[in-house]
Design a binder for these strands. Sequence first.
DNA 1: CTAGGGTTAG
Length: 608
Amino acid sequence: MDEIEVAVKKFSENRKSTLFDEYERLSVEIQLNQAMLRRSLSEPGTSMFRAHLGVGAPPLVQQPVEQGKRGTSWGNGLHKIVKKLLRPVFWKKKGRKNVHHHVEKEQQEPSRSKNNNDLKSWKRFSKSVSNSFRIQSYSSASNSSTLSLTEMKGEYQEYNSSKAKVKQLVDEIRATPPQERSKILDSMIEKQGESKTIGYINDLIMGLVMAEELDLALKLFDEMPLHGLSPDCWTYSILIRCYCKKNQPDEGKRVLDCMIENGFRPNVVTLTILVNSLCSRGRLQRAFQVLEIMGELGCNPNVQTYNCVLKGLCFVGRVEEAYDMLMGLKRKGDNDNEDSSSTNPDIYSYTAVMDGLCKVGRSGEAMELLEEAIAMGLTPSVVTYNALFNGYCKEGKPRKGVGLLKQMKDRGCVPDYISYSTLLHGLLKWGKFMAAYWVYKEMAEVGFKVDGRMMNTLLRGLCRKSWNEQELFKFVDEIYAKMKSWDYSVFPDTYYLVIQTFCIRKEVDMALITLKEMIEAGYFPRMVTINRIIRGLCKEGKISQALSILVLVCEAGKFPSKISFNILIDEFNRQGFVLGACNVYGAALKLGIIPHQIPSSSQQIKLP
DNA sequence: CTAGGGTTAG
């Protein structure tokens, strides 16, 4: 009697507790249950479960996440298997298909993604850094040269002022809101009055192009006759650049024709911009036309031009031709050393072809090219290695990638974020979790943050692996702790595997803590997870805690599975608490579930 | 009288 009074008191004291004290409350409740169970042996007919299995219990979790969102577990599993089986075929097809896709409907291919913008702004930034460096080195070089002071000053100012003017214009344009830019522009031209020169307008158009105000730049060009100015060579060059930026290389080609008609001779640089724009959209035919024009003009393409073509050939899948072209360039360099120094293949050329080979699954040949480049005295860059990593990882040889990583470090090339994440992604994709762990480790040491999705995958992989190799438990703990400290979101199926791993390790307490964390994160565990924990608790004989989990499920408004009841009844039977087993059975029936397991008294009944 | 060009992952 005493016992029950104490338990009831504790129970009512804890009734109003908050969500996260639920466990404490439940355990008190269980104490009450046990007391009542003992009593019910002498007073038959007391149903101890009425209290919390009855109707009207408050939901435990405020807004449980719907579990069935991703379909049934069976459907999900099947989907995964099919996906896995198709994967090696899939990427190849996808790659090729894309290529043709680009060739045929090239008109509609706007900006790629937000990421691209980041890249662009980064490029802009790094370019401005290198430009300012160039100016610096220029001035210091002039200082030590034999130029007279006035000459030097003049040259320096001239060089600097044109650039600075354009840069200032760009800043000004950027500072004004987009709608007012047109007005500002008009007033700027107005202010110039009669003294406007072609140079000024050119700077203006250039500034607009650099500030991505391409339509305004075109408008200004159209208005040039109104100001009594006619375009010069530089104006046309900027215009071509503008159309290339607008992703309308065909228009650019038209400007080129017009330019030549008017007797202007474009530069290699301008032509290369055009070739690049054509190639990167897969318009190889046009690009070759431009090359022909270059030949006619006697304006020889240089490495940069050829590199653009190489890239273009690879892009549309004509890797073989790209390879031949590279070999041709190399041979040309070997034969006549006089005038070919500007067309000798450099590391960019090799990288372009290697990337092409890797994308069609010929990373072996790409590797040979790497050796060749090194033998030629070229220094492979990070990008070169990254292309190879990508190839290896797509072909399912991520281990070779690990070897390459070591090689590149030995050769003094520092891997960047892309190197590591490509490799890590590949290792995870092909199930090499230990290798992936070591790559992760290295990344963390260097100071790179691993993407949250990959961390989830890594953790899941390590969990599964640790079931057979217990020495991996510490890695699981490490990764899980890291994810929590980084505030990464742990996915529901990852939680499930961590919980299951704790159960297998016979650390049910940790499993319970993880379950609590999972609920706090806003996920309600699937029944499999629930059953896993109930089974784990039962194995340790902690049947009251196991019961509390079942209660938790009911109070959350979830429908417990038959298996949960089976496990509990089985355990009650095993411990000899037939009445407990009967009560659980009864509770199940009340919910409309008929457990497979039946209360049995095969063992001797324990009396308290 | 000069400006101005090229490479990488999911």
